[in-house]
Amino acid sequence: MIESIQNAVVNGKLKLITGAVQEALDGGASAQECLDSMTAAMDIVGAKFQANEIFVPEMLVAAKTMQRGVGVLKPLLGEGGAGKLGKYILGTVAGDLHDIGKNLVSLMIESAGFEVIDLGVDVPAEKFVETYKANPDTKIIGCSALLTTTMDAMRETVKAIKEAGITVPVMVGGAPITQEFCDAIGADAYTTDAASAAQKAKELVG
């Protein structure tokens, strides 16, 4: 039962997931067990992505499959079920309109158990700060930049967050970003891809 949920997510079987979750529930599995199996499935998906076994489209479908499965569980999980790891503010920095990589991170972070507040693209530094102030229980802030020309905007964003006295970790990522750059601008963590971003986020709150 639980295995069929896991297989449906790993293989991105969007059409099968609702039935698989329902069947598991009917068979006596708890909503939490179903959720855990999907989170575990996304760990497998992340590992496959890192091993070049699967790519962006399959990872997206897997994450969407999990989202649909979580939809079935939501009424049963109540508070602190899905999103139990806390809030995660995410956005692509000012001057940069790239959406896809950031969305992938959003899906993976959400699959890992966070509640993602997605600010979209071309997000001014102040917007990150304001959103944090409106959500002081936020656990992590994530900034994305895909252009080398917008790396400066990322530097400004991290600076604004730190200067506002916000102490939660700031994660950065995107094609031109490196560990060296992350260190130089005073961000707290850098990961190379969406799968490792999800792992890192879990470590940071763990």
């Binding site: 790519f55 962006v56 489209p57 997206l60 309109l97 790239h98 959406d99 896809i100 693209v121």
Partner: peptide, 16 residues
């Protein structure tokens, strides 16, 4: 294109 949702969808679709 960078603000086009059609482009985003096509981009992911044609990655395969």
């Amino acid at each position: 294109l960078s603000s086009s949702s059609e482009f985003m969808e096509n981009y992911v679709e044609y990655m395969s």
